[in-house]
Design a protein around this nucleic acid. Sequence first.
DNA 1: ATCACGGTTTGCA
DNA 2: CTAACGTGCAAACCGTGAT
Length: 424
Amino acid sequence: MHSIALIDVNNFFVSCERVFNPSLQHKPVVVLSNNDGCAIARSNEVKALGVGMGAPWFKFKGLAAKHGIVALSSNFALYADMSNRVMSILSTFSPQQEVYSIDECFLDMTGFTRRSLTEQGRQMRQHIKQCTGLPVCVGFAATKTLAKLANHIAKKKPQFDGVCDFNAFTNHQQDEWLGSLAVGEVWGIGRQLAPRLQKIGINTVLDLKRADSATLNANFSVVMEQIIRELNGTMCIELEQIAAPRKQIISSRSFGIAVTDIGSLQESLTLYVSRAAEKLRKQKSYAGAVQVYIRTSPHKEREAYYANSMTVPLQATDDTRQLVKAALWGLERIYKPGYRYQKAGVMLSEIVAVKNAQSDLFGRPDAVATRNSKLMAVMDSVNQYMGKRSLILASQGFSQPWRMKQGSKSPNYTTRWDEVLVVG
DNA sequence: ATCACGGTTTGCA
DNA sequence: CTAACGTGCAAACCGTGAT
């Protein structure tokens, strides 16, 4: 039997902010999404006040004032840096690690005895607390799906003190726990599937574990069958240690203020393509198509809604300038004056590894492509060492009135010396 | 009927 | 005073036209 661990940081973004500003400890704190739009991380105090995940923040301004909730803009540079530290510490506990998201990872702990497993979990918690100041919870089980649930139990039930080994339970105890959890808690069962399952009498995780596979196969996809097998302890979803190269790369943002002119759209799209192209080059790929996308706000009922996109094919490339050109060409075709645009974005697709990219008949690399990649490499390293806005295409614009709002962002404590406050 | 395709929906963090 | 609602990925799903 496998032993899979799932470790995740409690209220990750909020916990990061608290590490560097301890006065936030025990206070209600939220971190807001880009543009200060939605609540994307909440301290326990805020969860208790009924603020949901992804709640639009303007609806809670009153509640926030009443209870003294501290609302912070998101600081992703800080969170990414803290994440790297946590992942690096956890990698010392097993050679097999899958970094699943910014705040959680799986470890294959197969081979440890039951008793030492819980002990390992305690050490992970203690180590991470000591080195980073962040609180984590640990769940162990035979499959990734069950490890997720074990982690959930560790987080919700104080008696576990943050570490839950699902296989330390008897079979009877296991089923009791699963019977106490709503089916929607299962990894892969979301707001669409949960109601459909409830309609056919599957309310708890235990119900799903024991569900009749024939009836489910008729009504659901193969993914459902995988989930059920995983709930029964059979590993179907393997640990993916090496991150697969992206098949699509997206960069999109909401604007700080409504945008009506094509000039601002061109500027913002230039920026987004630049970001996407950096990611593309980082994974050593070319893109064969650029999709450009603009939209007015879907929330404003009194305003006319318009959304459109266009996919522009091109000779596979990683050159920001060619990708920008394609995106702006597409924009010309979908832009309609008279609308108040709220968001724009680009998606790179038809992605191929550089080494598999088509060369000429004789297998020689294209001379122009080679010269362009050298230029792009220079641009990337200048931006890496001198700050990411050092070298940009002029079509990005300089005043950028459309840039997103970030009213109260914390300093980049760990990545920018010039933003660290020195007391003394 | 079946396939390849593209756009849309779903789920996740 | 008013208006103020995220981002990035994969995969499933579904309609459509071609065969």
